[in-house]
Amino acid sequence: MILVTVGTQVQFDRLVRTVDDWAGARARDDVFAQIGPSNQRYRHIRTERFIDPTEFRNFVEASSLVVAHAGMGSIITALELGKRILVMPRRASLGEHRNDHQVATAKRFAAQGRIEVAFDEDELADKLDHLDVHNGSERLGGEASPQLIRTLRAFIEGGGVRSEGTNVNVSA
């Protein structure tokens, strides 16, 4: 089964429509999508607007591939359960989000070799055609890596980050 998820805050019809068209063109009947607050109807895939967290985790467990927006919850859950994940980040220029943080997230995880990324509809359909979904992904451990702990410690002890010349203080 292929699980498509867009999170719960905003719809991502461009992603779901692309997967629906792909499933129809390939006569796939094994695609389920959690579509968020969308009123769109899809012809080739099963959909639900929302599913509870336990049910979501069960869907991820049962899937051979997760296709998602570049939301941290979706990415981390898939990696935690050792599932292949293909993400298409929302884009601010298309009115899908207020900024391009999902593009940055997708690029960062892709650079680590942990996820596959499609930046547009054509690339998503192509990757769906060619992605080997039978090979799982390495599961994330239940503990933070030493590198992550060092990075967070440096951030906290440094008092924040510099962004466009502004010091952001994160102390309580």
Rank of each mutant, 00 (worst) to 15 (best):
Q40T: 07
G95S: 08
V31I: 11
R26C: 01
A172V: 12
A118E: 06
D52S: 00
P37D: 05
E61I: 14
T77W: 01
S93E: 13
L131T: 11
L124E: 02
K107F: 07
E157R: 12
Q9R: 15
A110T: 06
Q147A: 15
E143F: 09
L15N: 09
A23I: 01
W22H: 07
H69C: 12
H69D: 11
V31M: 02
D20G: 07
L15I: 01
A104C: 00
I115D: 06
G82Q: 04
V66T: 14
V170G: 12
V16N: 10
F56H: 11
T18A: 15
R162V: 13
F109K: 05
E123F: 04
E61P: 03
M72F: 15
N169G: 09
V133H: 06
P37C: 02
G160E: 10
A62C: 08
D129H: 03
V161G: 07
R28G: 01
T18S: 13
A25Y: 04
R91C: 10
H97W: 05
S63Q: 03
G71Q: 06
R114Q: 13
R114V: 08
D13P: 13
F32W: 05
Q11L: 10
L79E: 06
R17I: 14
E55P: 00
H69G: 09
L131M: 12
A118F: 01
E157C: 12
A104G: 08
A125P: 05
V133W: 09
S145E: 15
L15E: 05
G158S: 08
L65I: 05
D29C: 04
R84V: 12
D100G: 11
G36C: 09
I156W: 02
P89M: 02
D29I: 00
F119S: 11
A111K: 10
F59V: 04
